[in-house]
């Protein structure tokens, strides 16, 4: 189990670093690249919990599909570095925003620290439930209805995004 500790440390530090870089880089492309790295780190964290299927889907769907879309839009819009507004030096508002986020962080961490779960090791079935075989088994029996509902949602999103993003062609009378 020592390997799990080592990998958790590496991936946790990597995930926090890349997340911070994502929200602080001025250039949107380097933000996006750090987010891709972040998704790989999360995938590694899922593997430390024996969730193989989720780890693979994380890389395929997030790092593969969603981030390609994001990078494509950034390139399409030809965005430069984000300038900071000079009159944005609204210190009170900035301080309030960070104070709120900080209190939220303290609240969530205290909730965990204040009531420890007592779970110190993975469940003995952890390696068994995360396999593609088991996930597929459960997905197509117990979760069949949500699965079909999600396909409907994806269809709606597909049609919606085409309608939103298409150019309005003037009607030729």
């Amino acid at each position: 189990m020592e390997l799990q500790v080592l990998l958790f440390t590496i991936f946790a530090i990597g995930a926090v670093t890349t997340a911070l870089l994502t929200i602080t880089r001025r250039n949107p492309v380097s933000s996006a690249m750090n987010l891709v790295a972040h998704f790989f780190m999360l995938s590694g964290l899922y593997l430390t919990m024996e969730a193989q299927f989720v780890a693979a889907v994380q890389v395929l769907v997030y790092a593969g599909a969603i981030m390609v879309l994001v990078v494509f839009v950034i390139m399409l819009l030809n965005l430069g570095k984000e300038q900071q507004l000079a009159e944005r030096g609204n210190a009170v508002r900035q301080t309030l925003a960070f104070a709120t986020a900080g209190m939220f962080a303290v609240m969530m961490i205290m909730a965990v620290v204040g009531g420890p779960s007592g779970k110190t090791a993975l469940h003995e079935n952890a390696a068994m439930i995360g396999t593609t075989e088991n996930i597929g088994q459960v997905l197509f029996t117990e979760y069949l209805f949500p699965f079909e509902a999600v396909s409907l949602l994806l269809l709606a999103a597909l049609i919606g995004s085409v309608i939103l993003a298409k150019r309005h062609i003037k009607e030729e009378a």
């Binding site: 189990m1 799990q4 500790v5 958790f8 946790a12 995930a15 926090v16 997340a19 911070l20 994502t22 929200i23 964290l45 430390t48 919990m49 925003a97 960070f98 986020a101 900080g102 939220f104 962080a105 969530m108 961490i109 965990v112 620290v113 420890p116 779960s117 779970k119 110190t120 090791a121 993975l122």
Partner: peptide, 20 residues
């Protein structure tokens, strides 16, 4: 071994990073 709480704290930190 890593306890569950460590994962939850990491998750909270990442969530707040997103909020910021």
């Amino acid at each position: 071994s890593i306890p569950l709480d460590y994962y939850l704290i990491l998750s909270a930190v990442l969530f707040v990073t997103g909020v910021v």
